[in-house]
Each structure stands twice: as C-alpha cells, then as structure tokens.
Design a protein around this nucleic acid. Structure first.
Lengths: 230, 230
DNA sequence: TAATCCTTGTTAAAAATGGTTAAACAGGAA
DNA sequence: TTCCTGTTTAACCATTTTTAACAAGGATTA
C-alpha cells in the first residue's frame, strides 16, 4: 500500500505541484486548501504523514498541528514556512513537528525528508508470494519454475498456462470470473483473448486429468472454478 | 573521478558559460546543442547527471528526458525552463525530473542543486554496489572482473555477457523485461538488438548448465527470469 | 418442444516470438 | 596488413500464442 500523505496548502499552484509530484513518487496524496479542510480530512482518514503550510486562511498550520497532535501523537508532520523565522521554527518543533522546509524549497529535498521520516515510522510490508512449492492432492506445483508435477509426469508449463493455473490455485473452490482472469493475464478483456483463454482452459484440463480429484468446472456466463472432488 | 554532466542547451552563450563554470567547479562536462545530439551523447556514455533545456530545436527537453528515463531511471535530470510555467513544471516532474531551474538563474544556485542531488545519488551508488564476489549455489561471480566460476570451470565473460548476467543476478527470481535489459545494456530497444540479446541468453544458459539449480526461464512476450529450481 | 441465440469446447492453422548456429562485420592488437 | 575477439546479422527451426472454424451445450423465447 502506498503511504498516505495529507497536504494542506492554500497556494493552489504549489499545492498542485506538490500533490502531483509526490503522487508520481508513489504516494497517495490528499490536497486540502485550508486549515479547516485539513482538519476534517485528517479526522476522516488515516494518514502516514502530514505536510502543513503555516500561513493559511481559517486555521493556521500551528493550530492544525496541535489538533492533529491531540488526536494522534505519532503521525509525522512537516511544516512549510514562507520565511525562515527562528521563532516559527522553534514553535513548530515545540508542537511536535518532525521537520520543516523553508519556501522556496526543492521538491527533491522535500521528497528526501519524507522518505527519511517514513522510513523511521512505516514498516515495510511484505509482498505476498505464492507458495513454492504448492502441494495439493497428488500435485506439486512450482509457480516460480513454470512446473507442474502430476502423479504421472512432469510438465513444463508455458507462461500463459502457468499464470492461469496460478489464478486457479489461488482461488481454489471459488469461481474465477472470466474477465478477472483476462484482465490479469491478458491485460484486456476482449473477444479474441477470451477465446484464447478457452484454449488454455482445455490445456489445463488435460493436465489435470492425471489427478482426477481436481477439476475445473465451467460456471456458465461467469467463469470457471477449480474444485476438489471426492 | 569527476562526476560527468551532460548539458543540453541550444543557446550557445548560456551553454558555454554553464559548461565552463561547472568545468571549473570540478565536473566533467559535455555540452550538446540540441535534443538529438543530447540523445546520442547519452547513449554513448554514462553520465551522473543531465541538465536539459526545455525549448530546443529537433527534440525538446521533455522528449529527451523521457528517452533518458526509459534507458535509465536513476540518472538525475535538472530542467532549465525559460518561464516558470506550472504546466511545464508538473510535466517535468511527471517525467521524473529531479529539479528544475527557471531562467534566469544564478550559477551558484544551480551548482548547489547539482551538489545536493549528486550527494544523494552517490550515496545511493555506494549502498548499491553489486556484491563482489557474489556467491549463489555453486557459482561465484566477480562482476568487477567479468568472471564467473562454476563448479566445472572459470569463465571470462565478455562485456555484454557480464552486463546481462549482472541484471539477472540483481533480479533473481524476478522477471527481467526484454526492453528493460535492452535499454540498459544496448541503450536502445530494436529488433536487431533484441535478436542479439537472444544470442547472449543462449550463451549464458550454456554457462549455467554447470549449475543445474539455476535456470533462465522464458516469460513469453515479456522477458526472462533467472530462478533457483528445486 | 422447437427454434434460436449465446457461450463454451475442441482442433487445427496461422502468426508471433524465441532458440540455435554460423557467417559477417568491426575494432583493436600483433 | 593479418589475426583475434566480441558483437551483430542472418537463416532456419522450434515453441508459444492467437485466430479461425465448427461442434456442442445451455439458456431463452415462442
């Protein structure tokens, strides 16, 4: 999951640039135009980091930061300040800011600071890996190696066969919708791709004949379902 | 070693001033006068940072930047833009610019930004050196020395073999897309380069026969994947 | 229930992609 | 120059994927 950033900045120019740039760098950004909007946004959703302008209409950055701190002690805050005023900076850190940037600043630098702060607080989430090997009934399936071992033989799967079979194992006993599989593997649900998939279904069914307790059922008009039969 | 800068600027006046100034400050500068020259220069040599003017004859800065990004997504890019147009700036960051400067700008500021960016990317490089030697299963691979030692023999790799093998080890168990490898090694994804790569894949596969638990699988239509097999 | 339509199954051919080998080419070294 | 080495190009073959054609099975409607 992308880290969520709350950006509260009243200058629409800077706000959009920030939002777009950070969006491109892999963050899920929310842009609010004043302190009140910012406050509401913060209450409505969980953010991993807040970037607050100091001078804003309706509710200034300090006030907003205090409010955020009173709701949640953890969420890091970076202040954007127009001029490097020592007083402001001290006040900011008193409230519990994690960093501050003096305008004009380089996007690069802001990004670096965000990364630095998030590295501290956000734990990396592991990407889910398909078990390798994956054993079921008499089959051993090595997704990583495009290889399926049946009681009868060892099959080197082609790329498409492999991707399709993986989806079935991931959804054992559940219906896999045609369009779901098509979009995942063929990136596009179209007539010809659908026909192509049907050809692969036939191929996989042939392979599964070696293990009769696993069958691919057709759910007419919806998709297919790999089931364990007794 | 001096950091290498590629400067692409069509205004000969500004171009030379930049080139001379940065040269004096300890950089190895290459000055090109339009987008096409810039593109060729980039393909011929490795640069640590690119400074691109936006408005140029033959090929504008955006197009050039996109090309550079598709070959290598690491090399930092700084844009020089005549007017601070929000659209341009956003577009620049979209492509993956690291910074931008609005003309007229001070040389000192440009220098500072170059230093800031290089400081970061040099650090990154240091962190990301390919382990030398790199050991896996029965193999020992000395990337620095173009040398691969298998249980059977010691192989002196050619440049292309070495670069390709490195990419595979860096992406162990992950798919390496054809075009990614082509752009990285051949700087250009074209029919003949692709065929050339296929020839190298065959060569590397032969070398890997000495260690049967490592195989390069073909991901049809996408690329290749070096996997550890069970 | 027959007629029809739409979806799926099956097979084969066509097209696209990749594998292999050797010859051609290019550049540097002797 | 000639030789040597690394790389590219070419030709031919093999495999994978897509397309096409037709058959079969469900669903729907009259």
């Amino acid at each position: 999951m992308k880290p969520k950033l709350l950006i509260v900045e009243d200058d629409p120019n800077l706000g959009e640039i920030l939002s777009e740039y950070l969006g491109l760098k892999g963050y899920d950004t929310t842009l609010m135009r004043d302190g009140e909007e910012g406050s509401n946004a913060f209450k409505e959703s969980d953010y991993d980091l807040c970037i607050l302008d100091l001078m804003m209409p309706k509710k200034d950055g300090f006030t907003l930061a205090k409010e955020i701190r009173s709701i949640d002690e953890e969420t890091p805050i970076i202040f954007l300040t127009a001029k490097s005023m020592k007083q402001d900076i001290i006040k900011g850190f008193t409230i519990g800011a994690d960093d501050y940037m003096t305008k004009p600043f380089s996007m690069e630098e802001l990004l670096m600071r965000i990364q630095a702060i998030l590295k501290r607080s956000v734990k990396k989430e592991e990407e889910e890996v398909f078990p390798n090997p994956f054993k079921i009934k008499g089959l051993t399936y090595y997704y990583q190696e495009n290889r399926l071992i049946t009681p009868e033989r060892e099959i080197n799967l082609t790329t498409k066969e492999n991707e399709l079979l993986k989806i079935f194992f991931e959804n054992l006993n559940r219906t896999v919708e045609r369009s779901t599989a098509l979009k995942k593997i063929w990136k596009d649900d179209s007539y010809f791709n659908a026909r192509s998939m049907d050809v692969y279904i036939a191929k996989i069914r042939k392979y599964l004949q070696d293990e009769p307790s696993l069958k691919i059922l057709t759910i007419h008009g919806e998709g297919f379902k790999l089931v364990e039969v007794n």
